[in-house]
Each structure stands twice: as C-alpha cells, then as structure tokens.
Write a protein that binds this DNA or RNA. Sequence first.
RNA 1: GUGGGGGUAGCAAAGCCUGGUCAAAUGCGCAGGACUUAAGAUCCUGUCUCUUAGUGGGUUCGAGGGUUCGAAUCCCUUCCCCCACACCA
Length: 953
Amino acid sequence: MLNTQKIEKKWQERWEEAKVFEADAMPGKKKFFCTFPCPYINAYPHIGHLYTIMRVEAFARYKRLHGYNVIFPQAWHATGSPIIAAAKRVQEREEKQIQMMKDMGISKEELPAFEHAEHWIDFFAPAFEKDFREIGLSIDWRRTFYTTSLNPHYDAFIRWQFRKLKEKKSVVKGKFPVVWCPKCKNAVSDHSRSKGEGETTQEFVLVKHKLVGSNDLIITATLRIETILGTTNLWIHPDVEYVRAVVNNEIWIISKEAVDKLSGQTRSVKIFGIILGKELIGKIVEEFNGKKIPILPGMFCTPDKGTGIVHSVPSDSPDDWIALQDLQRNHLLCEKYGLDYRTIEELRAIPILDTPGYGDMPAMHLCEEFGIQHQTDEKKLLEARKALYKKSFYESIVNGLYKNFFGKNLEGMKVTEAKEIIKKELLQHGFELFYELTGPVVCRCLTVCIPKIVSDQWFLAYSDEQWKQDAHHCLNQMKLYPDTVRQQFEYVLDWLHNWACTRKEGLGTALPWDKQWIIESLSDSTIYMAYYTISHLLSSLDAKKLDDALFDYIFLGKGNLQQLAKKYECSETLLKQMKVEFDYWYPLDFRNSGKDLVQNHLAFFIFNHVAIFPKEKWPISIGVNGWITVDGEKMSKSLGNMIPLREISTKFSVDAARFTIVSGGEGMDDPNWDSAFAAAMKQKLETYHEFCLEYYNKGRNTHTSLDAWVESRFHAIVKQTTAAMEETAFRTATQLLFFELQQAIKWYLKRCHNEPNKKCIQQIIEAQTIMLSPFSPHIAEEIWHAIGKKGFVCQQQWPRPEKNKIQRDLEVGEEIIKTVLSDINSVLKLIKKEKPEKITLFVSVLWKYSLFALIHDIMQGTKNPNIILQYILQQKEMKQHGKEIMKFLPKLLGSGKIPVTVETDDAEMSVLHHAKKFLEEEFRCHVEILKAANAGHPKAAHALPGRPAIVVE
RNA sequence: GUGGGGGUAGCAAAGCCUGGUCAAAUGCGCAGGACUUAAGAUCCUGUCUCUUAGUGGGUUCGAGGGUUCGAAUCCCUUCCCCCACACCA
C-alpha cells in the first residue's frame, strides 16, 4: 500500500522548493494565463470548488507540458455583505450561525474573534490557501491577495478602475427602489434581515380617479396596469378611515397606512382630513379616459395593502368578480349603502384580454374552478389570483379595446409586451409608480422595513448601446468552452441593463467621488485578473502613495517613468517590471467558472474589459461548467453531502479525487461525483504505479508486428487525448489516456506473453505518466521518479502523436483475433468443454468488390443473401447511392440460391496465421485455419468477413 | 412563461452535429470463476430478454407521432430535470 498522504506532501514540498509554478514574464516566450474566479471566503472550500478549479488546473498543467510559460494565480473574495452579516450573527450568538461555526470546527473560545469581519478574512484566506495547496494546485502563490479596502493596494486599484469607468461615462447616477430600514436608515440586504429573506420591492402603478364634483383624487394601486380598460367600479371598505392628504400639490384619498409608504418614495404627503369609507360609497369617479364609474363597498379591501382602495376589473380579477357577484346578489347591502340595486345589477364585466383556456372572462371561470363562493374565501382567492396572474402575464393577449391606446394599436399583443407600453403611456399622463414589498421584512434591529427610492444610486451603464456592441465584438472573437454557451452569452449581453454598482453597507472600496457609497461585490471583481500580473510587485510600494497615475502607466502605458519612480519612491526598474509583467501576461487566456456566473460575473467581466482596455487586451477565452452533484444528489448543506477539500486527502487521496471529479462529466451538464469511483480510483492508481515499476525495464529488443500494433493504438490514443485536452474535454481525455490505454496495454501484454518490446513499453509508460500528471500529479511524479527519470514530470514534454505510426489495418487485424477468441470461448462454454482437442477456423472473404459488382454476384446467386446484405449496408457506396439500390435490392434477394465462388482475402488469413501460435497456447490445442470457400464443411458457411466460422472438437 | 443546457441499461456517462459496423464505448456497482490459509488486490467471465455449438430473434435510448429501405441519431408534438431571469455571492 502506498502512503498517498506522504507522497502528496513530498511532491508539494518539492514543487515549492523548486518554485515550479512561479512564473515571471519572459518576453518572447509563449505564455498562458488562466484563472478561476475568486471564491468567497466565508466557509471552507468544498468539492464544488474542486470541479471548476480542476478545469483550470488541468489546462494549466497541460499547457506547461506544451512548453508554455503558465501563470495560474489565485485570490480571495471578501467584498459584499455576507461576511459582515455573518459576523453580526455571531455577535448576536444566533443559533443557526453558531451551529454553522460548530460544523466548521470552530470552537467556543474562537467565537468572539469571529464577531469581527476582518477576522473572517484573516482566518479563511489562509485556510483556503492551505486547502488549495493540499490538493496540489499549480498556483503561483506569490500573487495571492484578497479583495476589499482591507487590502489598500487592491483598494487603490479598484478606485482607479471606477474612475476610468466614470471617465468613459460608464458609471451613471439613477434612482433605485430598495428595502429600507427607517431606523438604521439603510438598505437592508437579504443577509441583514431577521425576517423576510428573499423578499424584494415590487412595482405598482398608482391610478388616479377624479371624484366627480371635487378636485379630490381617489388613488388605487395595481400590479396589472394592462387591465386598466376593464375597470367597472372602485371598491372601498365602508368601515375604514381614509385620509385626505396633499401629495405634491394634489389632493389624494388613501388609507392611513399608505401615507408612510408614499412619503418614503420621494413624495411629500400632508394629511389634512379624515374620511370614512362609507361617505364615499355611491359616489362617482371619472377615469383618465373620461369614463365614469361608481364607488362600491368591498369588505376585502385592506388598508395596509396598496392605498387601501381597489379599482375593480371583474373580468380578470377573481376578487373583483366575486365581490361584484356578492353585491349583485345582495339587495339589502345595496340598500344599506343607499345604492340602487338595479344599476348595480346592470354592471357588467368588460372583456379586455384573451386568455388561452379561459376565454375573455378568466376571473369568472377561475371562481367556478376553485369553487369560490364569497369574497371572504381568502385562501381560495389567493390561489386563484396567483394561478391567473401567472397565466395571464405570460399567455394572454390584449383585445380590440386597446386598438387605439393613446394613438397606439396594441390589439393582439402579448401582455408582457403591451404592459410596458401601457405603463409608459399612462406615466406620461399623470399616473405614478409606487413600490411595495413582496412580503413583510424585518430588519436585524427588529424594525419593520419599507420600500424606498434611493435617488443617488450609481449604475454601471450596461444598457449603453455602444458598450453592448463592443461587448458583443469581444464575445465574437472569443473562444468558448463549450461553444454551446455562446447563445446564452449573446442573450445576456443584450438583456443586461444598468447595474446598481454601489451599496451602503458591506465590505469593499468606497466610491472614490462619492464616499458614502461602497462599490458592490460583483462590480469590483471584473478586471482584477490584470491585478494578478503585478500584485506580488505592487505590495512593496507604499499603499498610501498609490494613485491612478501608477495604474495608468502599468495598464495603459501613460505617463513618465522617471517622474513616477520619484513619486512612489521606488526604482524605475520595479515600475518597468510591473509594466512588463502586465504587457507580457495580458490578455487573459482562459477563465473558467460555473454556468451560473454567465449572467452576471462573466458578462460583467467582458463588459468591463472592453470598457477599460484596448482591443488587444480583451480576454481570449472563457470556460463554463455545470454544477457538481454528489452521488447523484444535488450537493447542499441540508443534505449533509458537502465534501470539504480538507477531507479529500484522507478520505480518497488527492490524486484519486482529482481524477474522479474530472471524470464526473464535461460540457454544461451537471457532473457527478461518484464516491465509489473515487475509492476504486485510489486503488487503480496504486496498481498503475506497481505496473509501471514492474514493466518499465522489462522486455525484449526484437520488434514484431504486435509491437507495431500497440504503437499504433498508443499514437491513436495520444492523438485523441490531445484533441480532447485542447477542447477542455477532460473527461474524454481521462477516459482515453487511462482506461483506453490500459486496455490496449493489457491486450498487448497478453498477446506477447508478458514479453513486451522494451522501447515500446517504456515509451508508453513515460507518455501515460506525463498525460496523467495534469490530473493526478503526485502519483505521476512518484512514478516518474521511481522509474529513474530525472526532473519533474510536470515539466516534461506532452507526447507527440505520430500519424504514420497509426495503422488502421493492424487494428482491424487485432479486432479479428479478439473476436475469434471471444467466439471460441462462447462455444467452449456452451458445449461445456474445457479442453478442446482441435479448433478449426474457416475464414471467409473480405469483400473487395465494388457495390455494383456485388449486386451482380447476388444476381448470380449466393449462399446467404442476408449476409451479403449486411455487408453491403456498411459500405461507403451505400451512403451515396443507398436509396436507388434499396429499391431493387429486395427483389434480387428474393431470388434463388445459387452457389457462388469467391476469393479468400489474404489479409485475414495472414492475420490469423500470425495469431495461430497465440491461440494454440491460449487453448492448449491444435488450431487449424482453412479457407471457408473450399472447406466443404457445413459450418464453414457461417463464416463472415472478419469473423471466421469455428469448429471445436 | 422566457433564454440556455439536458433526459441513453442498476448507477454514472459516451454516442446524436455527419442516420446503417448500435443491444449501444467506458467506468462504477453487482454476480460467478481463478489465485490466496484468509481478507484485500489482481486476472478471467457474465450483467435487457428469449434462444443457441457462438456469429440468431424480440423489445429498448423520457413519451407520442413523422421522414426514410433503415432512427438513440433528422423533423414535429408533449412530459420531466438543471441553470438564469438580477441589485447578490
């Protein structure tokens, strides 16, 4: 048994000593720069990280074997709120958080330290590095850093980045609705809530209804502005007190509860009167289009939702429909509020939308479907409403009433489209927007949160057309692994609009020109790969002195070297060196991440690169992969199937785990981690190690056709493996270079009775070990060393496939022998004979005829037309002329059986003659090989090209 | 719903673009055998089903249609799974 942990450690130390993975600019030498996105360091890394980073790692090691000067740097991400929020939770000793800390193996004594965000970084950054080192990643650790203002050098870099963006007008100011805590006077992110995780703001439109005979406006709020033409009446709760208030020079009637919400949203609201719902019932309001409708009693109106008043669209709202039904059935109620029930009865729902499956009165149908009897059936109504909203939003079509909507014809348009147009028009005609939360949110300070419009929010202007075009341009010339993600990228680049890039809380860099803001996490991590090229040199400068001039010089080649050196009190050489490093390494050659980052990080990455850097520094390629599943199940904390990296060495061995995870899958599919495979793989690698030691110096010097065969297989496999590696199809590559090659070797050794050609087997062992090294580097080094090779395996040359050594006919020959072997075995098994006395092989023809000659022969007659047919179907001509031929072939086959004489193919005969000795030894009996055509044995008729008939005696 | 990626034997995963050599690679798992004092490892054999002195038949590649002499592969319909739909890592 190998001590894998010892081996891992040994080689990691040796690589470190020899600085194998430290790469510096070497102008003139080909280079490869690859990165894995900074992981967020609020917990230990796990096997999910491993899969994605292995794609970078394997590619990096592969490129090194091709003589590239490779850098693979790694930094840590701490920008944003999760760490701060977690620290706060620790401070509060929140149960869940404490449990999480415990699960991570953090003791009670250590807890107080985790109350401070800085400690998380101090703790996890080294932890990540340790874990990453322990799985043998070929990272240049000199270049490591972490993000946020806690790293002043990086901080200066981010400030430079944002000033550059601002210069290009890529950062703009705008309005933005947020979840707001009135007490903390802060936006409350998901992580800082004690209740209401996942709730966001929701955009309503405020509809103004003019009370006839006064200047008062009754305000309703709706999510479904596209139904505006279906309004038949207003609902108001008779027993609720509403207020009259001056809102931006208008008089509004709204619920008390609505006042706070409205005033939080850039409005001044002054209450000057109270009005009971009852007082308004029966009155008439005038709509924006002049239509007059009544105000009716609706008990379902709740003052804390919207404005507490509802406009009624009975055609498309189950609530409105059933409320209207209730009222129309209830004469007493009408009388109670002094309403004329005849006019009430005449109120009819107005069809406005066509909803597939429900026609133009979906609310009515849904009330029936859900068995809703009364407006107090809240549960059922909620379900019906949800069902309808969803269906209607995506599937309904607006009808003829919208033929002339402010001069626009919307008839036949989908709701998703029409909605935006309707909203836009109405906003121009005095309607207003209003935000509500999708559900109750309570801040960490236990204050109930409200929606608020922040008016000085900064955005990255991704909606800018020119910027989008540049991004597309960049994408078009980029290589994507796999290319199937391209469409997704195209879509995302188009779809992205302005991104709110600043926050009020969290870790990060202060926005240089507006220090109340902190740059948001995704926005600060878009071009930091450039920072890798200089991070190890930059840290020797005094952070306080750093400013834009430095980065302008390094990244954009502006400014005077002498002056700058003076300014930063450093040598010119150092500054120059930084510039050389950047110019040499950039552009970035390969960036790989999970597929979930396509729509944000990777898209931002493209955008910001094209904004800041000249074309020749734009990224070269992006790799994208799926999400790991563990033994067929989604990986999650709750399932308890997270495998932390730190457990890998002891549980599976690093080499086995690295190999396993890569063979889990490729492309965009979710790959699978198979624990049983990992365990088996550990054993296989050990066996492989033993095999190499046993066979490396074994063998003869003579060269046979069998050696030529194994060489052919070897070169074919190397060729395929290389092609797969180039496409980052690492699963395919591992399958080929390990299993496929093993199989070939096994057969080879069997055929040559464990007496391989020395040169052949050495070449194969060396090559296989080299090809294995990107995946399982420790064991590869161990083998390399053990077979007496000098240097590191990771610094060797990737094997070169030699085309002229690949000989198809040799492979076909061995296939025939394999078939014969397996056929004899099945016969032996069937007749339960262990020791045959004699085996006779009847060899048929390899048809040399052209297809048409064959058909001619069939017309002459044959012993078995079906066999011929089968053979015909495989021929190239069939692919070209298949249709014509098949039309008349059945007729031919229907004709009689006339014996036909055919020539035996010499190739097959000679293959079998060569293998005769092998077969005889295999079965320990005499083997006879005859031409089927003139054997005269009844079994001989079974012979097929490439598959002799067999008689065992 | 929209955009993207998928659905293949017990599990995982090739094949699909470019239809025929596909009952479908490979690996894991499982079963039997050899070796061994034994375990592990290793090696061999089998692993849809029925047959059989083997190269044969049947039914399979989410489901249902279609194109074709021929479909896992091309086209249409449909169901299911994953990712994203944002202000955040």
